[in-house]
């Protein structure tokens, strides 16, 4: 990817967000995801209570907040891995709050996990191939007739190898995923998600447990996703990283969306500082 192209996606994202006011629930010109009244309570504890949020298409949006702010729960809700107590949202023009997790993925919103979920006793290549969508050979009866799916399998394999090349895992393709390091597993998980050709990719703490050297390459990969026209929403703690790659930042605290804005606006926002400090005081009581 050339520098010029890299700039193109970033510039477009910046332009799209230029006039958006830095306040929670701010409307975007072309929202790929738009959620309203999302609430998730575990008994008496309200983990998520987001009034309204929109995610601009083609941007990298960071979701930050202190521990226990409800970021991952919100993620789980949006991706169908958890059910909301109430609320509704649309993804890419389709109502998505009733979808099951696999339907969400098929609709084009694919997630990764905070604790990486590599399929350890399968090869790296198999990990990739399982990600491909609409496979004929995944029907049980069709499995008996290799002629029906060999061609599609070869195409998928070609795509998988290209992605492994891009994520510098090509030499590991015949290794078990369990042999990879933590950082390589993160790369694999991201590459695997791309096998679905998603419109939006949700990364839950992509940098957790990754060594500094690999961190930089992961950052570049995430930027590349934007250049490929994907929308990225990621949960992160590290403000430096957020500054480096995010076009937009949404801040959650105690289950609520407290503010939104560009990384610079967020850094200067007193509410954010309070939220983090408040959380630290809370944390001391645990």
């Amino acid at each position: 990817m050339s520098d010029k192209e890299t700039k193109a996606g970033k510039t477009a994202a910046g332009a799209a967000l230029a006039g958006v006011p830095p306040e929670p629930g701010a409307p975007k010109q072309d929202a790929i995801l738009s959620a309203t009244g999302v609430r998730r309570a575990f008994g008496g504890l309200v983990a998520v209570d987001v009034e309204h949020v929109e995610i601009q298409r083609g941007t990298i949006t960071a979701l930050i907040g202190p521990n226990g702010a409800g970021k991952t729960t919100f993620f789980n809700l949006l991706t169908g891995f958890d059910r909301p107590s109430k609320g509704s949202w649309e993804f890419d023009g389709r109502r998505a709050d009733r979808m099951r997790s696999y339907q969400v993925a098929r609709a084009g919103m694919v997630r990764t996990f905070q604790l990486t979920k590599a399929l350890t006793r399968m090869t790296v290549l198999d990990n990739m191939l399982i990600g491909a969508a609409d496979q004929v050979g995944e029907r049980m009866w069709a499995g008996l007739f290799p002629g029906l799916w060999k061609k599609q399998e070869a195409e998928n394999q070609e795509r998988a190898l290209a992605l492994l090349e891009r994520f510098k895992l090509i030499e590991k393709r015949e290794h078990y995923a369990g042999e990879l390091s933590g950082g390589q597993r993160k790369l694999l998980e991201m590459a695997r998600a791309l096998m679905l050709e998603p419109k939006m990719i949700m990364l839950d703490e992509p940098m957790a447990g990754v060594n500094p050297a690999l961190k930089q390459s992961l950052l570049e990969h995430i930027k590349d996703l934007r250049e490929d026209g994907m929308t990225v929403l990621f949960v992160e703690h590290d403000m430096d990283m957020v500054h480096e790659i995010a076009d937009w930042v949404a801040v959650m605290a105690a289950g609520q969306l407290i503010t939104e804005g560009t990384p610079d606006q967020i850094s200067a926002d007193q509410r954010v500082i309070d939220a983090y400090l408040g959380a630290h005081h809370d944390a001391a009581q645990h």
Binding site: T79, F81, R100, S101, Y102, Q103, A105, R106, V110, R111, T112, F113, K117, A118, L119, T120, R121, M122, I130, G131, A133, E138, R192, A193, M195, L196
Partner: peptide, 12 residues
């Protein structure tokens, strides 16, 4: 290996 991971990849 991990059914959640498989679910996240769009498999029923």
């Amino acid at each position: 290996e991990d059914e959640e991971a498989v679910r996240s990849l769009g498999k029923n």
